[in-house]
Amino acid sequence: MNSSRDNILNNLLKHSIENKPSKVVEKESHNPLSSKKKIESLKNMLESVRAEVHLLTSNSLNEWINSELPKRNLSRLLIGNDTIQSNLGLTFSDDFDVTFYTENIEKWKDKLFNEIDVGITTTTGAIARTGSLVLWPNSEEPRLISLVPDVHIAIVKVDEIYETFSEIVEKQNWSENMPTNALLISGPSKTADIEQVLAYGVHGPKELIVLIVS
């Protein structure tokens, strides 16, 4: 046995309960938001931190991506794999240079850091009150798609918008099946470390585009 471990554990306060009441945390009660209000709140919150939000249908999603990205000079796309792509109903025109994240990062780190403009990911939900996207990266959609490229496009299904963080944790039963990495993303990367002046795009994506699909 590690002796530091034993020393620390032995040194700690021995008992509990009598000292500090460990009250059961009661759930906050409020009027739940309608689904229209949830979309509205998600959109407003995200826009307030300079994310771009669009409401689309599964048909217009493909059109939006194919017509908007060239306008912004974004052609080098990264997406998990072809299944993710086809599940989203996406077909990219030949003007795009599409990369699938099918190889381990070690094999293509330089390309990821230097030759990709946009990462496209799905989400496992969103949180209306705080304007947060929830991502559970996995083998099909690895962690770095939403972090390294300058632009992150996240696709949210309209019926997966929850009201609060607590609600999504409970309804999706997170405590039973936490993934290796779970993320809440609420806007593009930012900092206020120089004279409290807000500056966007410090280490993560400079732009976050959220496409809410019904």
Partner: peptide, 11 residues
């Protein structure tokens, strides 16, 4: 209201 990232690492 909340920070940009909340990163939960479980392994």
């Amino acid at each position: 209201e909340c920070t940009t990232y909340f990163n939960m690492i479980s392994g």
